[in-house]
């Protein structure tokens, strides 16, 4: 009973999607499969961005610089991969770049106790400026983007095989990270301490948990996740770097995080919803439906964002201490 009332929106939404999918799959299997596969791909950077947001906000620091972290990391990953010719180095560079920016955010908001919104904005502006300035036309990845990993017979199953078992490595990695981070957050000492610091830092401090250490750790690790999201964009989704290629995904990731109630699994579900809206939009454009109004179609993911955030999250409660710099006296 209380389970049903508590998750009624999730249940309704999930039931709707399953029914809708079965219905369309009946006579349009190819399109349905394409939309679902695209949903997963589109959701990947949102999931990574949202996981970064969760790591930061659960420890009490607002990070609106995810967009900047992803953009800069997409760039760093691309440059390193194209000059070394090794995608793995590129991914590592993307993660490292996100972590460095996370450390910088921690320095501004934890050590200097500055305003967290301003600190995040600094990251965004810096990323846009630097990547635009150093951007060079004509670079490319000698190896091409990451390649598809197949799982034998699993990949040949109808619909499921194409959707879940015909992806590229970072997509699989992201699917793995969701339960891992959920588990870490709710079943490890690190997770308990993180939540305590985000809710009531002085209480955590009085039992010997260092607020500063936890916040630095989470901002740096979270930055690594956003960096991975950036690397995904340039090295797996597109295969090159384009100006402003994050295109607001870092901000949508924040909406995803809130809609998912600061819970990794919830955020994953929310990201799928946004990814789905995006995939449907692409299909529409591809088939030329509503072709007179491409801007309208392009707006769809954002409309979904607004409706969802305004409509459903009413009672979601953010960690109590977010946004407040912590000092002892």
């Amino acid at each position: 009973m209380s389970f049903l009332t508590r998750y009624r929106w999730w249940i309704v939404t999930a039931a709707f999607f399953v029914a809708f999918t079965l219905f369309t799959a009946e006579f349009q299997q190819a399109q349905t499969t394409a939309v679902l596969a695209a949903t997963l791909r589109q959701s990947t950077p949102l999931v990574l961005g949202a996981l970064c947001g969760i790591m930061c906000e659960r420890s009490g620091v607002i990070n609106i610089g995810i967009e900047g972290q992803m953009l800069m990391s997409a760039f760093a990953g691309f440059i390193v991969a194209s000059s070394t010719g090794d995608l793995l180095y590129g991914v590592a560079a993307g993660i490292a770049c996100g972590m460095i920016m996370g450390a910088f955010l921690a320095f501004l908001s934890v050590t200097l106790q500055g305003d967290q919104i301003i600190a995040g904005t600094v990251l965004n502006i810096a990323a846009i400026g630097l990547t635009s300035f150093f951007f060079q036309q004509g670079r490319s990845l000698p190896t091409g983007k990451t390649s598809v990993m197949r799982f034998g017979a699993l990949s040949d199953l109808p619909i499921v095989g194409r959707v879940f078992f015909t992806n590229r490595p970072l997509t699989y990695l992201t699917l793995l990270l969701v339960p891992v981070i959920w588990y870490a957050l709710f079943r490890t000492t690190w997770g308990l301490r993180t939540r305590a610091v985000g809710e009531h830092p002085s209480a955590a401090e009085t039992v010997g948990v260092s607020v500063v250490r936890i916040r630095y750790l989470n901002l740096i690790l979270g930055g690594g996740l956003a960096g991975l999201g950036g690397a995904y964009l340039s090295l797996e989704a597109v295969g090159s770097f384009e100006r402003l290629m994050t295109n607001g995904k870092g901000f949508v990731a924040l909406a995803v995080m809130i809609f998912g109630r600061w819970n990794p699994v919830g955020a994953w579900g929310a990201a799928l919803l946004f990814g789905y809206a995006n995939a449907v939009q692409t299909q529409f454009q591809f088939r030329g439906w509503l072709a007179d109004d491409p801007q309208f179609i392009g707006m769809m993911p954002f409309i979904v964002t607004i409706v969802v955030v305004a409509g459903f999250v009413g009672r979601a409660r953010p960690p109590a201490a977010i946004g407040q710099p912590y000092s002892r006296e």
């Binding site: 079943r187 490890t188 000492t189 690190w190 997770g191 308990l192 301490r193 939540r195 305590a196 809710e199 009531h200 002085s202 209480a203 955590a204 009085t206 039992v207 010997g208 948990v209 109590a320």
Partner: peptide, 29 residues
């Protein structure tokens, strides 16, 4: 503490063991 230092959204047990948690090794609560 006179002004209680408890985390409101955590359970009683979580509050009491916080910072000194019993684990099943390697940080697993």
């Amino acid at each position: 503490h006179q002004h209680f230092q408890l985390v409101p959204v955590l359970t009683v047990a979580e509050n009491i063991v916080l910072g000194n948690e019993p684990t099943r090794g390697r940080g697993l609560l």
